[in-house]
């Protein structure tokens, strides 16, 4: 790096002595820092290495310390969901009601898939509202990291906060729909029952299932963007095979296929909700245990799966 003599003359006043660009470059050459040397230096100064995944236990503790962030993020996002139109929060109630109306028209009146149900409107309403929660939680959960890249790029916090908060957001968004459901159930002629108190438990188990799926999908979609396009397809498929608007045992019999359809996590969520709210379906250990096992297993394995990708989120 040689400098022309005219420039050097300009610089003399500041630098006091004439020197070539090479001297400046030489003096300011970056340090050559070997890995061992750097590690020793960092250790002596008590620095923390970046981009390194913490242990699972430490990670869980870290996530717990960010619980306030989870809550504020979720509640703010949930409130913002329906803010961009005139009827605002009213849509949280109107949307599922309109959906029930159109499904009743198609499946109740035109296709007549009401076989095996004594109170089809209650059956259908529970199916739509409960499945709707899972569907929105899964779709939003799959985009939990890539959809909030602004946060990911700007701030360092355990990324598991994102799938958790997205799941909680979808739960909060669906609370008005669940309230409507509790008003509609007695209107459809279901007798009051103490079993109704189990409905929140069913929703809790369903939330664990949703969260587990969100953990898995959020990491997959972050690693391979394209998979985000498959999630809505999968959810749509699940909508038609999970018994949202028809009774699985009535149409699929009692063989292996029926058992598989009935005990997959999304169908189990609807079964437990119907057992809690409908007279026709008595409580069965099978479905509640299945829901609990799915919830715990999916949530735990999903968290481990998501944690193993920590440090890679937002890197592309």
């Amino acid at each position: 790096m040689t400098i022309g003599s005219d420039q050097v003359v300009q610089d003399v006043q500041d630098v006091q002595e004439v020197e070539s660009g090479e001297d400046v470059a030489e003096r300011n050459r970056p340090v050559a820092l070997g890995p061992e040397e750097a590690a020793a230096l960092a250790r002596a100064a008590g620095l923390e290495e970046l981009g390194v995944r913490p242990g699972l236990r430490g990670y869980v503790r870290e996530v717990w310390s960010y619980r306030h962030l989870v809550w504020h993020l979720s509640s703010a996002q949930a409130w913002a969901t329906n803010q961009n139109n005139y009827l605002g929060q009213l849509w949280a109630v109107l949307n599922p009601l309109l959906l029930v109306g159109s499904y009743y028209l198609i499946f109740g009146l035109l296709l007549k898939t009401r076989g095996g149900t004594s109170n089809y409107i209650a059956f259908l309403t529970i199916g739509i509202f409960v499945f709707g929660y899972s569907a929105s939680a899964i779709i939003a959960g799959s985009r939990a990291v890539v959809g909030q890249i602004g946060l990911v790029r700007a701030l360092r916090f355990p990324r598991a906060v994102l799938p958790i908060s997205v799941t909680l957001t979808q739960f909060l968004v669906n609370v008005p729909a669940f309230a409507v459901l509790m008003v509609m159930i007695p209107l459809t002629g279901e007798p009051f029952s103490p079993h109704w108190l189990l409905f929140p438990v069913a929703l809790l188990l369903q939330s664990l299932i949703n969260l587990g799926l969100a953990f898995f999908l959020a990491r997959l979609v972050n690693a391979a963007r394209d998979s985000a396009n498959l999630v809505p397809v999968g959810v749509r498929l699940a909508r038609y095979v999970s018994g949202v608007f028809f009774s699985i045992p009535h149409y699929a019999g009692h063989g292996l296929v029926s058992a598989l359809l009935l005990y997959q996590p999304l169908a189990v969520s609807m079964t437990t909700a119907r057992e809690a709210l409908m007279d026709q379906y008595p409580l069965t250990w099978g479905s509640w245990v299945a829901a609990a096992v799915w919830g715990v297993v999916l949530c735990a394995s999903g968290l481990v799966f998501f944690w193993r990708g920590e440090g890679r989120y937002g890197s592309n």
């Binding site: 590690a39 008590g46 923390e48 970046l50 360092r156 890679r312």
Partner: peptide, 23 residues
Amino acid sequence: AIAGLMPPTNGRVWAAGRPSLLG
């Protein structure tokens, strides 16, 4: 990378406490 928002492909970075990046 120094903010801990982008994992190093090679090499290592150490930092004290909380970094805050203003982009």
